[in-house]
Write a protein that binds this DNA or RNA. Structure first.
Lengths: 341, 341
DNA sequence: TTGTACGCGTTATCAA
DNA sequence: TTGATAACGCGTACAA
């Protein structure tokens, strides 16, 4: 370190004020005369003062830290969400301590303990490994994003509306049969609504449909191998029909599109494709893919506002805690591109 | 808050030890008898003690914070780098305060001031807006990743070796003419070496080549529009030749590949393509793209180790500062896929 | 408008 | 092996 920090005491000695006055210069400048403000301001930069916010936190208990637990940044959905969350610094000036975790509950608990030790005022959870019951047991505001959130506040896409829009489009475009390709999603998580909405819509319009929930595997290669089978099954099963395929995400949709292209050398009229997420691959594919765009910026904004509101509430002399968790849904938008008519 | 924190004072009162002894329980447990360790351990969880690391920092000056300034998470390169950096927590237990910044130097300086106020022990910079001279003026260890780093430590890919491998592959594959497509990169940044290596290699092997450094624009659409022109120029200019195209990144390469595919319905033998970055799009393209893979995990690991070493050094009673900045280069690997023979 | 005195939760120094 | 006391840098009653 060499020489130690310049502190209020140094400024006070230099200006012949007390430490309190220096403190007030920062927190209630109006209570000083302009003349004295100027004096202190000068002293500050002749002495080269640097703030120490940690000392401030210790004194007033407001860390202005928010913890984030996120499963990975590999998926565009997560990296974009993190970007949006971090950029809320411009509005609220909360600082973010970020942990990436996808290695099970014990690691995640350890991370949260560490975050608590740094006196975070709130927590944003995007990972799925800890139950909302467990998360609620930490005595701070917690916001879940796109995950099970029974006992805590949560923000999700309106998956039902998203899938409904996708299915409706395929039906309007006069597809003879609709097929939904997805992993075998557990019913507890929000994304399950995509399956529900697809079925409901097909039934409502009396359109033949099929659910293919057989996608499994972690790596791109694994999933691509699955997708090859799924494609050839579908391609053989409905030779003369116009097939409307709704895929669980844009990565799946891109794979499917590539398989079609590799077989036919073009995108034939007998297919329509809709993906989900509006991730970069949907734009960058051999043909821009129609997709359901989650409004990530809005989701992040909603989550932060919900969190900030609760954190501010807790700082009041007589805080009124939420009587029960608030849950919000953000409607996604259908983005029509070249894989639908 | 409701009830306040349980502190060492509470534990001390409960166990009839002093605060000092409680502190020692955590920092030098060997200096207590096993019996007393047990007593304190019990008291800790009957009282429900939670650590307060901020108080610890104030007392001993070691924040264990590292600041990160990163331009965006939209590019796979950055999001993967951030993932790797954050995951170093498992080894070193430094916590990361992350800022995303691409809005100019004044915003970035403000972010760094905020980081300094939180007593960060080190800083990792991936953005390009602040000069290394400016960065060196903050009196803490700073590591630059893949950017200008004259006055600070830095880690970069060995861009020269990467481009050399790409060009050499295209030459071995008997391309008649080599073309490098890139933006007009300034000479000061490490990525300029890709252009240098390409030229050097073509000249060394006496192979006809062309530099096309005309890619400009921020959005995918802008760049794609540029790429259309570049493609049709090249496609017309060398009708009967085997063209080896080395593109500055996988996004460019994928665009070029799509344009080829859309024109020819397949990938003709008259083309070879090599991208750069090994980003997901290179695997997910209509044809898996040969690319130069930056070893992001290794770069991150090297950067963190360099930083940790300097941060530890500063904590010694008589720290020996670096006489001059250390710069390391990580050799990328050529990943051969389906756009080269 | 300004100052005094104490608290925030932990560590470091010295002494026992 | 343990304890008393003074930091660390700032905020906040309360008083002047």
């Amino acid at each position: 370190m060499g020489k130690k920090q310049v502190t209020f005491a140094d400024i006070a000695a230099y200006t012949n004020f007390s430490k309190t006055t220096i403190s007030r210069y920062f927190n209630h400048p109006d209570s000083l005369t302009l003349e004295n403000q100027e004096k202190i301001s000068q002293a500050l930069d002749t002495l080269g003062y640097k703030k120490n916010k940690l000392a401030k936190v210790l004194a007033n208990g407001k860390s202005e830290f928010i913890g984030i637990i996120i499963p990975n940044l590999y998926l565009h959905y997560y990296s974009e969400m993190l970007t949006q969350i971090l950029s809320s610094y411009r509005d609220f000036h909360y600082k973010f301590l970020v942990f990436v975790s996808d290695n099970g509950p014990s690691e995640e608990e350890q991370y949260i303990d560490e975050l608590m030790a740094y006196q975070i005022e709130g927590l944003i959870v995007l990972s799925h490994t800890l139950s909302s019951e467990k998360l609620a047991s930490y005595q701070i505001p917690v916001i879940a994003i796109e995950r099970e959130a029974e006992h805590i506040c949560g923000v999700t896409s309106d998956n039902y509306m998203g899938a409904l829009q996708a299915a409706t489009l395929l039906i309007r475009d006069k597809c003879d049969v609709l097929i939904h390709v997805n992993a075998d999603v557990p019913k507890s998580i929000p994304a399950y609504d995509r399956i529900r909405a697809f079925e409901d819509t097909c039934q409502e319009y009396h359109v033949p449909y099929e659910l293919n929930l057989n996608v499994i595997g972690d790596s791109y290669q694994d999933i691509f191998a699955q997708m090859k089978h799924i494609f050839s099954d579908i391609d053989e099963k409905y030779p003369c029909k116009k097939k409307g395929i709704f895929l669980a995400n844009d990565t799946y949709a891109n794979m499917f599109l590539n398989l079609i292209f590799q077989k036919y050398g073009c995108f034939p009229d007998s297919y329509e494709l809709v993906g989900f997420d509006n991730s970069p691959i949907a734009s960058e594919a051999i043909l821009p893919i129609t997709t359901v765009g989650q409004q990530i910026d809005l989701i992040a904004k909603t989550a932060i506002e919900l969190l900030v509101q609760q954190m501010e509430e807790r700082k009041k002399r007589r805080p009124v805690p939420l009587s029960e968790p608030i849950h919000k849904q953000i409607t996604p938008v259908l983005i029509r591109r070249d894989t639908t008519s």
